[in-house]
């Protein structure tokens, strides 16, 4: 929990002065319309600020040790680097690698198995999961309502200092929806602001031939659920989408992840079993395990020479968006949490 009187004063007199600063969501040109319904949660600077504070504050966990950012680090494209499956409170481990967070306004469902149907509701899952934050929503609200720091931020955002479940979730959703990555080299090429090298261009052609039907441009996912031929890990027995639909036809299907910022979002797959992009490419050329629910697009093995794999990798690296990854507006809000530097 954060109690910094000086910071509180800054928030009170700074943000309150510009209360209800509505902001609009800027859709990159040529992108589809976002799925998120902004009319039910109109954007404002104050709500995004509150959401950002909550995202980085371990107050959301039972022992105040784990924040959203613990498993969604900006420098790892908002996923959990260095661990195959993410770990939470008390070093508990789950069964999946946390998905990267970006361009969430276009997602139609959330989590690897699509368990969550709306971005607003996503934060409930990690907050209440015993292996993630180990909290319960009502107790989080008690902690927030006992904090003058948060009472002021809630007032700035919603005109009411009382934290409610609705406002807690809407604020976190506002921060998450602001995480737009649309300025990679790929994007610049599409805007005629840059050019692919010959190698990247060849990689793009291979991508279009082999990958684009699931990792569909410009978001690099079709947001559907597919079985991509991974043998099941018997230590997790994770059957993916079937857990939610109870339909055997959904066995071993997982949500297609975006490839944007793939350079930084390692390890890969729902259980983080591959540490490098090369391992991923080798899986698609020689590691596919056939089963009744395997994606029809993978029935025929992908044939790529070593040089072609390098070219494809070169293209995938053009999806890195350093402006997004190192955007101070998305980073730890030290201006809120840390004492102001003395001049």
């Amino acid at each position: 929990m954060i109690h910094v009187p000086l910071k509180l004063a800054v928030i009170c007199f700074g943000l309150a002065a510009c209360r209800s600063n509505s902001s609009s969501f800027e859709k990159p040109a040529e992108w589809p319309e976002p799925v998120y319904d902004f009319s039910k949660n109109p954007l404002s600077t104050e709500k995004t600020t509150l959401g950002r504070a909550l995202f980085y504050d371990p107050i959301l966990s039972a022992d105040n040790t784990i924040s959203c950012a613990s498993c969604h680090s900006p420098y790892n494209a908002f996923t959990h680097g260095d661990h195959n499956v993410s770990h939470g409170i008390g070093d508990s481990t789950g069964t999946r690698n946390s998905p990267p967070l970006m361009n969430l306004a276009w997602h139609t469902s959330f989590m690897w198995n699509g368990a969550i149907n709306h971005l607003d509701m996503q934060a409930l899952a990690p907050i209440n999961h015993p292996d993630e934050m180990g909290e319960n929503t009502a107790h989080v609200l008690q902690k927030l309502n006992a904090s003058n720091f948060y009472r002021q931020l809630f007032y700035n955002a919603f005109g009411d200092s009382t934290a409610t479940g609705e406002n807690l979730l809407k604020a976190i959703a506002q921060f998450m929806v602001s995480l737009v990555s649309a300025n990679s080299k790929y994007d610049q090429v599409k805007r005629n602001q840059a050019s692919f090298t010959a190698q990247e261009q060849n990689g793009y052609a291979l991508f279009t031939q082999h990958c684009n039907k699931c990792h569909t441009e410009p978001l690099f996912s079709n947001f559907r659920f597919e079985n991509n031929g991974l043998p099941i890990d018997s230590s997790f027995n994770d059957y993916g989408r079937m857990q939610i639909t109870q339909d055997p036809q959904d066995s071993l299907k997982f949500k297609v992840p975006t490839l944007r910022n793939i350079e930084f979002s390692f390890p890969y797959m729902h259980d983080g079993r591959f540490k490098t992009i090369s391992e991923v490419l080798n899986h698609y050329t020689s590691g596919i395990k056939e089963s009744s629910t395997l994606s029809p697009l993978l029935l025929n093995p992908m044939v790529l020479s070593s040089n072609e794999k390098v070219d494809l990798l070169a293209f995938l690296l053009t999806l890195s968006d350093r402006e997004f990854l190192f955007n101070p507006a998305f980073a730890y809000p030290k201006e809120l949490f840390l004492p102001a530097p003395k001049d």
């Binding site: 319904d37 039910k40 949660n41 709306h118 971005l119 607003d120 509701m121 409930l124 929503t137 009502a138 609200l141 409610t164 479940g165 609705e166 406002n167 807690l168 979730l169 809407k170 959703a173």
Partner: peptide, 11 residues
């Protein structure tokens, strides 16, 4: 339809 308030508050 996302986060609701009052009787429908997820908390």
């Amino acid at each position: 339809s996302g986060a609701m308030g009052g009787e429908l508050d997820p908390s």
